[in-house]
Design a binder for these strands. Structure first.
Lengths: 226, 226
DNA sequence: GAAATGCCATGCGCGTGCTGGTTGTTGAAG
DNA sequence: CTTCAACAACCAGCACGCGCATGGCATTTC
């Protein structure tokens, strides 16, 4: 999956790039609108993330020009907080989704995946792994068919696990994906949430869905799709 | 007003969706004929826009099957340029209007509005969920058969809930769909409306139609169509 | 002018996220 | 094999803040 990020704030652009690369995307960066337009015309990206305020050529114009050229790459528009008109203009110009800055990286990744899924014609918001299934639209979780009520953070942790099954996930990685920024490093919140998740999902200790890898992190060990 | 768009060209479908949403319609998309038929049979749409060339089940067959099942949803058929016979066949199959591609978006919107207005004298477009039912034309709401008087904003909130049953809806999402421009974010209006809705719909606290998810939003939890 | 509706301000209760401490487990070194 | 330190699991309690509830004010409508 190849993604183009058109963003002039270098720091933010790099952050977005890093997170996307963690999800196995190939990422190209562009720091102004005209370069972004050139790239999106040249390459068949699977997705583009475009800031609305850009040097040389603003995001809206970029999208309009691209759509005029019949470029169908799904586009997520990044807008400033609260400017509702911009969002409408963006969708009108041909963006597929928008996100207001500042945003949670999780949110962006979720929308990226949703958009890619939508483009692939698979609008299925449910993940399942073993007896556990999760619906990201309703944020409901079931285990053996029974609904398991989770709190907001418990849900976030589980969702991240199920999006990355069998992958070794360090506590810092979890933290970074669950909190926007600024978090206390010497805290055991993650451990507590993992504990509660294990209790709620697997009260009898049969499944062992979350494996501990000492000094490295956790691994979610249920066969996806089962 | 709820509209179904059955169109396999994703870009066009999204454009239509965006424009309709700007006119305060709720829009569902369907990318092939059989899915479109399923949706139009399931939900009481106020209008459907159907492309004639579709995968799995073509537009004409879709319309015929729907009409055979006594589904009266007004339908606009999208045909290719110049194929005069198709238009006749379409109207013959039960379409209410047609439009040849490519078309101006304004034209489509005008015809949508005309058709909805024309259909205003037709069977009631009611949504129902559990003991609650809602007529989007007259903006009346009933619970257990008794009419529940709602104010304008209470109605808007309920309508949005009933159009998105079981979906987690954040307060900002509600705000964006209910108000035309952006709004003071640190206001508790939404909470107040939800409170009043709960009181009016469920004074005894039996149904619990609107669930609160702390830090996340609300979820409307009544089975649609029940 | 009265009634209805939308919005704001305030207080309160409680769920939830987080902290601190203790117990348990692992693995490496002696 | 034993020891010990480091790490994780677990527990329980605290406090912050979210959402509920209420009353009052402003604005609109008839």
């Amino acid at each position: 999956m190849r993604v183009l990020v058109v963003e002039d704030e270098t720091l933010l652009a790099e952050q977005v790039k890093n997170h996307l690369m963690q999800q196995q995307f190939s990422v190209d960066l562009s720091h102004d609108g005209s370069d972004g337009f050139f790239k999106i015309s040249e390459y068949p990206y699977d997705l583009a993330i475009v800031d609305i305020g850009l040097p040389k050529l603003d995001g809206l114009s970029l999208i309009r020009k691209a759509r005029q050229q019949d470029i169908k790459t799904p586009i997520i528009l990044l807008t400033a907080r609260g400017s509702w008109q911009e969002k409408v203009q963006g969708l009108d110009a041909g963006a597929d989704d928008y996100l207001t800055k500042p945003f949670h990286m999780e949110e962006l990744l979720a929308r990226c995946n949703a958009l890619i899924r939508r483009a692939a014609g698979q609008p299925d918001p449910t993940l399942s792994a073993g007896p556990v299934s999760l619906n990201s639209r309703t944020q409901q979780v079931w285990c053996h068919g029974a609904e398991v009520p989770l709190t907001a953070y418990e849900y976030k942790v589980l969702e991240y696990f199920m999006l990355n099954p069998t992958k070794v996930i360090s506590k810092t990685e979890l933290t970074e994906h669950i909190y926007d920024q600024d978090f206390d490093l010497d805290s055991n919140v993650i451990e507590v949430f993992v504990l509660r998740l294990r209790k709620k999902l697997d009260p009898d200790g049969e499944l062992k869905p979350i494996e501990t890898l000492r000094g490295r992190g956790y691994r979610f060990n249920l066969a996806v799709g089962a």
